[in-house]
Structures are given as C-alpha cells and as structure tokens.
Design a protein around this nucleic acid. Structure first.
Lengths: 110, 110
DNA sequence: AGCTTTGCTATCAAATATGTAGCAAAAATT
DNA sequence: AATTTTTGCTACATATTTGATAGCAAAGCT
C-alpha cells in the first residue's frame, strides 16, 4: 500500500485531510510501536526486530520506508532515528502511556 | 482477531504492556477515525459509515465491537457514543489534529 | 582470508479488509 | 393497521496486508 500523504486520498478521507492521513499512517501495524522504541535512541534494523518482539522483517521494512517517506525517521550512522518532527509526534503520543495504565486498571476491575 | 487487552499478549508485547495493548487497539484500520467522529456526538451505524467514507460494514462492525469491549464506546438511545474514558482518550489524541496540519505543510514544501 | 553481523529480499501461507447484496427488526409515514 | 423507509447488521467472495521462514550480499571484525 502506498504511504499515506496529506492531500491525497487516504483511509478516512478522499481529500486527504491531514489528520486522516496521519491516522492512516499511524494506524498500521507496529507503526506506533516503532516510534515509541525509537524515541529512546537510534536503533538498528535487527534491534528494532527484537524490541518489537514478533515483527516480521517484511513488515518492519515497509514501516521504516513509510516513516522515512513521511519525514518522521531518517538514517544516521547509528541506525534509524526519529527526526525532529518524529520527536514532536512522539511527545504528543507520550501521554497515552500514562492513560493506558489507568485504562488497564479499569479494565481488570470490570 | 481478538480485542487487545492489557495483560494479555498483544502486538508489540507478549506480556501485554498497557501502552502496547493500546497501540494494538488504536493501530487498526479506522479505529482512530471512529473515535474522532464520535467525539462530535453520538452517531448511528449508517452515519458512521458515511463519515468514514469508504469503511465497509464488516470492518465497522468489528471496530465497534472492539471499542465496546474496551469500554471506549457504548450504545445509547442516539446510537454509539464515547464513554467518559473514550472522551479522555480523544482529548489526548486531539493535539494530533493541529500537529498534522503543520506536518502536511512541511510535507508539501519538501 | 574467514567468520559474524546487519539489512534486507523472496516466497508462500495466514489473517484482515473490502465490496456488494440483502435481510430482519424498528421506526416513521400514510 | 398496512406500507414504506431506515437501521444495524450478516454472508460471501475477492483483494490486500501481514506474518514466518529462509537466506543472501555487503560491511565489519579478527
């Protein structure tokens, strides 16, 4: 599948509304996990495979290409790393970590 | 596929870390879009189908079941609506809207 | 020069999503 | 009260995505 781009048809919006393009990008298996792991620091392909537990190389490679095309990650001497934009995105995503914990609690108590 | 639950194996974490369970849930096609639309107010199945443009009934139905099991949405007299938890989640997601716009700009200028 | 690690591709199988049709139940209309 | 319309889905076939496994070429040690 093509990398979703704002302004082009994406899942959720034929006119490619930015938020829907972003949801299309983030809403693919592993994408958010990869961003999450890369925030800790640059990482190689093989290390990402370990961190992401059961991700297949096929899928990881696709995700890395999409994120690169989207200017959220880039390659450095140390492997893949988040760009400035990527870091900003992570920081918006990071409150989800705390929320998820309380969600997990409610979950078990219901 | 089963609804991801914290504490159970999910994509990204065999022990079901809450954040990974959340990413597994949100990172399925249309999930974030559905939450986004429902924040505006309760909506019926058919209206969600319209809002989400090309979502298939099969997929919509699956997503609605997952979100219900996850206590993020519930049914009311007016149709599906976000729960309190669902609204909280949306509010964490909402900054993405603004970010996506600047992302879209950078995108076109590169 | 040989051994390892890294980044990936190829291939095939399994899981998901899509498209279209249509039906039963509830609601609105006549 | 009978008829039409709307709603919420299910069935089924097809297309697309993801996953598992094997393995190879290039780079980096030793």
């Amino acid at each position: 599948m093509a990398t979703p781009k704002p302004g082009k048809p994406v899942r959720g919006s034929k006119t490619g509304q930015p938020i829907m393009a972003l949801f299309d990008l983030l809403g693919r298996s592993w994408t958010m996990g990869v961003i999450w792991h890369l925030y800790k620091g640059p990482s190689t392909f093989r290390k990402l495979q370990e961190y992401c537990e059961s991700i297949s190389p096929t899928t990881l490679n696709k995700r890395l290409k999409e994120l690169t095309e989207s200017h959220l990650i880039e390659r450095s001497i140390d492997g893949y790393m988040l760009t400035q934009q990527g870091r900003e995105l992570f920081e918006l995503l990071s409150p989800l970590g705390k929320w998820a914990k309380t969600w997990a609690n409610n979950y078990t108590s219901k």
